[in-house]
């Protein structure tokens, strides 16, 4: 018997994370529910005028997506740290870079992708122009990928702390800013009839950079946290 190949091991990890999430659907539904709740609050606070709602819709949707991602990033490694699985993952013969990538990929599928796919529904609630919907979904798909990857770094560094929630926000929120700027700019541009390509391209570049670098930092963070 030899160790499984790297892709097989990563697929095993992703599948394990997805099964775990499906058996605790609260963790998937919570961010979506948060999103729905806050979207429902905005017309109450800003007034129900469709025009003013539409002018705020792009930024509003993106800020809520960012916050709901922030809420869940704390949990990426928490359970595995508490039950000892994280130690075992660190001792696995496969490079930690790819194991971490599998964990963050699973987190992205569960939070970012599900949110991006359901976001047109919320966008209609805020009267976002229909032609901006493709840009919204695309920007959320790319942007949430960056946020999951960057959030993983914060999660890895704070997983050893009992109450890391606030600290993780302080650590990673500044790194979310460029994503928020270009993500909401893409949706605004599309809503005003301009092409959203340039902003999406920059988001794509950020995504590539995050895939290359974030797992390195996350792996190092996990080694430090498990050592403490």
């Amino acid at each position: 018997m030899s160790a499984p190949s790297l892709p097989a091991f990563c697929l095993r990890l992703v599948r394990r994370q997805l099964v775990l999430a499906v058996r605790r659907p609260v963790e998937i539904l919570n961010p979506l529910l948060f999103f729905a709740m806050v979207v429902a609050l905005f017309p109450l606070g800003l007034g129900p005028d469709p025009k003013s709602l539409a002018s705020f819709a792009a930024g509003t949707l993106w800020i809520i997506a960012l916050l709901s991602n922030l809420l869940t990033s704390d949990t990426i490694f928490r359970g595995d740290y508490d039950d000892g699985s994280l130690e075992q993952l660190l001792l696995a013969p496969q490079p930690l870079y790819f194991s971490v990538l599998a964990y963050l990929g699973a987190h992205w599928l569960l939070t970012g992708v599900s949110l991006a796919l359901i976001s047109p529904l919320f966008a209609l609630m805020l009267n976002l122009p229909l032609e901006a919907l493709p840009a919204l979904v695309a920007s959320l798909l790319l942007g949430s990928g960056v946020m999951s990857l960057v959030g993983g770094v914060g999660a890895a560094l704070t997983v050893g702390l009992k109450r890391g929630g606030m600290l993780i926000s302080l650590l990673i929120l500044p790194l979310y800013m460029p994503v928020l700027i270009f993500g909401s700019a893409a949706v605004r541009a599309a809503a005003q009839g301009f092409p959203a390509g340039p902003q999406l391209a920059i988001l794509g570049a950020m995504f590539c950079l995050a895939i290359a670098l974030a797992p390195l930092a996350t792996a190092a963070g996990l080694r430090i946290s498990i050592d403490a």
């Binding site: 160790a3 990890l13 394990r16 000892g84 699985s85 993952l89 001792l91 013969p93 194991s99």
Partner: peptide, 27 residues
């Protein structure tokens, strides 16, 4: 290495815990 914590996921069955173990051993 077997540490203090058993590295067993409460939401998985014993069979799944071993089949999908994170230690990266053989299938």
């Amino acid at each position: 290495y077997l540490g203090h914590q058993p590295a067993v996921k409460a939401m998985l069955t014993p069979r799944e815990n071993l089949a999908w173990h994170v230690a990266g051993e053989a299938d």
